[in-house]
Amino acid sequence: MNAANYLYLSALLFTIGAVGVVVRRNAIVVFMCVELMLNAANLSFVTFSRINGDLNGQVIAFFTMVVAACEVVVGLAIIVTIYRSRRSASVDDASLLKR
């Protein structure tokens, strides 16, 4: 088996995540799709770390995980705040600036 297969899987997962961010409207699902994209990037990092034979890629993936955790904390707090005032978790409903 070729280790580059992991890279193909990573590219596919990233694409699915990107489509999800554009198409889905529930803010939580959009957020999970962002997480999917970050995870796909992590898989690439780990695979490249293996192909290159050094651990820098794994350290970068570790940092990505930490940043993703921060992003989840703040993002979900924003979703809860919006839900509290608007009673909706749809990204289309928060369009006050448009009107």
């Binding site: 280790a3 992991y6 899987l9 992590n42 780990v46 695979t47 794994q58 993936a61 995980m65």
Partner: peptide
Amino acid sequence: FYIAQGAPFLGIVQ
């Protein structure tokens, strides 16, 4: 996949 690719630490952290 991480554990299979020689990154057990990242696998556990994941």
